[in-house]
């Protein structure tokens, strides 16, 4: 199912509109990058249905724009994960099964395949406060995938991790994302994330998309000074030449 959307959402402070238009194919990962305060997280919140927005959000042939967040079937992984602190790992993963109807006992059992697939069977009865950063990150991803979403939104999924673990967790995340059949939108400020995880990139600056393409395209021909800096010193002078030269 292709994810195709045009959303505009208003950011309160400083007040400006974020306008995002993007298309993400099934099984692909589209990275959204940009400077702090460019509206990346606001775009995610609008797509997930957490905030008011205008425009269309098409997933396959369904328009999600009018639906509340709980009916969009979009899995979200938050920067600070937001695991439920009062539930065990197993219950966190089982939460979507629980709210789909049924008892906790049945929902808990339905979490088993996810726990073993993510190598977390021995962590099942722990509470989130007793997990390492990498473990918590895996629980958050398992919880999102267990809800059988049609699309995934990842908001800075590795930002909360210590640098020394980030490479390992990123590689693991990459493997899991490759097994996910739907489109994924990944918000990040880390070039490494884009390189390892993403098929395509869009750049958001001050609420507007300034460039889209592969990371290599962006590096070769950066449209703005920020993109030149982001993709590496290599393209920087060329970019300045193109823009201001």
């Amino acid at each position: 199912m292709t994810f195709e959307l045009t959303v505009s959402a208003r950011i309160p402070r400083p007040a400006f509109d974020v306008v995002v238009e993007l298309k993400a194919d099934p099984g692909s990962v589209l990275a959204v990058v940009g400077p702090n305060g460019a509206g990346k997280s606001s775009a995610i919140a609008a797509i997930a249905g957490f905030t008011e927005s205008h425009g269309t959000i098409r997933l396959g042939d369904k328009d999600l724009a009018g639906l509340p967040a709980d009916q969009r079937r979009i899995g979200v992984m938050f920067q600070d994960l937001l695991l439920f602190p009062h539930l065990t790992v197993r219950e966190n993963v089982a939460f979507s099964a629980k709210v789909r109807g049924g008892r906790w006992s049945a929902a808990r059992r339905s979490a088993d395949p996810w726990l073993s697939r993510f190598g977390m069977a021995d962590l099942a009865e722990r509470y989130p406060s007793a997990l390492s950063g990498g473990q918590a990150q895996r629980v958050a991803l398992a919880r999102a995938l267990a809800s059988e979403p049609k699309a995934l939104l990842l908001d800075e999924p590795l930002a909360a991790l210590d640098v020394e673990f980030r490479d390992e967790v990123r590689a693991d995340l990459g493997l899991r994302l490759r097994q996910f059949a739907g489109p994924t939108i990944l918000v990040t400020h880390d070039r490494e994330d884009v390189e390892v995880l993403a098929d395509e990139v869009i750049v958001l600056e001050a609420g507007r998309i300034t460039q889209r393409g592969s990371l290599a395209d962006l590096a070769r021909n950066p449209a703005t000074a920020w993109i030149a800096r982001f993709t590496g010193a290599q393209g920087r002078r060329d970019a300045d030449d193109v823009r201001y030269g």
Binding site: P68, F78, F84
Partner: peptide, 14 residues
């Protein structure tokens, strides 16, 4: 942290 409620909504909770 009320944002846990957002996480719950994204998992399909009414």
């Amino acid at each position: 942290d009320r944002r846990s409620e957002l996480a719950a909504a994204s998992l399909g909770a009414s």
